[in-house]
Design a binder for these strands. Structure first.
Lengths: 222, 222
DNA sequence: CCAGGCGCGGTGACTTCGTCACAGACCGCT
DNA sequence: AGCGGTCTGTGACGAAGTCACCGCGCCTGG
């Protein structure tokens, strides 16, 4: 915990424009949080007692199965809220998903009472929350489309591009890439080798360099 | 459209216990609907302008991809609300999913204004909506677990059991079963043949009879 | 310093699953 | 009976997941 940055609301345009009266509980009830990378935000069975708004940093939400297989569902960045904790909070439902910070994260936490107060008070706040719900739902449906129907080649190419985010270098292991797309390490290794043979990437230990993004983008569309 | 059954609220225990004052818009604003089997409830791009509460019948929500591949996401029964239309309504987001009635459906439709009124007025209504959100989110995560990591054998066995719902006979084609689990018809045909050889089911044109549920349940757990 | 441990990547063999092409069986209709 | 359409069966093949095992580089403790 630390002092809240008074400007944190700028990360949430939808909330910043709320009328003074509605916004009051946000200012008075929110607690600033700082978490290092690797902090667990949500895990099945763990109690969660706050509504979390991400100000800076990134959170990865993923599923694990009994055999240790992993698949990334979506990521939260600045301006996002953690729907998983929210739903767990309100519906006291247990999910088989995990949420973990990937980088140091600054966030604001609203106690349940404050959250309920805002939900009752502000249509704008409600629509902000619903918008976030809708976005996460769309994320999950995109994941389903991918794992059910898309080829490894296209899923891997697409993921490399989004993870690179405009840059040309990634620090990531084949195992981690496999977890990103819900596949196996060997499969990813072989596919990366194929990309390398075609000159699309070059590989190093724990490193993937994008050398030619155009054909990767083409492959991602298939 | 038809006259609302005055007892329809009984299908929604969470709403029926709302205080008189909060419940008023439900009674005054809701419109009864009757739809035959095969009616489209939601499709991408179609405008939707009501919040839908299912009183009787069933709705199937599924995804299609460009090649015509299909996968069932979840089903809605009596007491459920259509989160898809709700989110599309509130977040004006486009989903790649379809919702269609499988049997004749009786439902109540709340205009957006009434829905917003209830959301503003009743904490109980809000928590009902959140509970439904949470349940659908859990459904989608279960689908992801299945398509990403579970074998065809276990997915098919599990689906046969839930579709039969305690009965021992299903009227369904192999193609439809494939769409249920997001696989291919040939794969389902071969797996069903294997089940038949083991004496777990017996097969007919458009028909699957469960002859021995115990090993199916065992296989579903793997 | 270097020895072992460990994380990472590479590879071959095999199984499972999805795709394609096609054939045959069954159904309802005229 | 003939016929078109739907449903199911099958073989061949490619794509993807699994298993077993290897070597390499890096790090760390003796």
């Amino acid at each position: 915990m630390s002092l809240p940055d008074p400007d944190w609301l700028k990360q949430f345009p939808a909330l910043a424009t709320m009328p003074e009266g509605e916004r009051a509980p946000l200012a008075s009830g929110a607690m600033a949080m700082n978490a290092p990378a690797g902090t667990t935000v949500y895990a099945p069975g763990e109690p969660c007692n706050a509504f979390i708004l991400v100000i800076s940093g990134g959170v990865r939400v993923y599923q694990l199965d009994a055999d240790g297989n992993e698949i990334v569902l979506y990521r939260l960045g600045p301006g996002s809220i953690c729907i998983l904790t929210t739903l767990a909070l309100l519906a006291s439902d247990a999910y088989s998903a995990f949420a973990i910070t990937e980088t140091p994260v600054q966030a604001m936490a609203l106690p349940v009472a404050t959250f309920n107060d805002l939900m009752a008070r502000s249509a704008q706040f409600r629509s902000f929350v619903f918008g976030a719900q809708a976005a996460r739902m769309a994320d999950l449906m995109a994941v389903i489309q991918n794992v059910a129907f898309a080829s490894i080649e296209s899923r891997l190419a697409a993921r490399l591009l989004t993870l690179a985010g405009g840059g040309h270098e990634l620090s990531i292991t084949h195992q981690q890439l496999a977890a990103e797309i819900g596949s196996a390490r060997e499969v990813v290794s072989r596919q990366l080798k194929a990309f390398e043979r075609r000159g699309w990437v070059s590989l190093g230990r724990g490193r993937v360099e994008l050398r030619n993004a155009a054909p990767l983008r083409a492959a991602a569309g298939r």
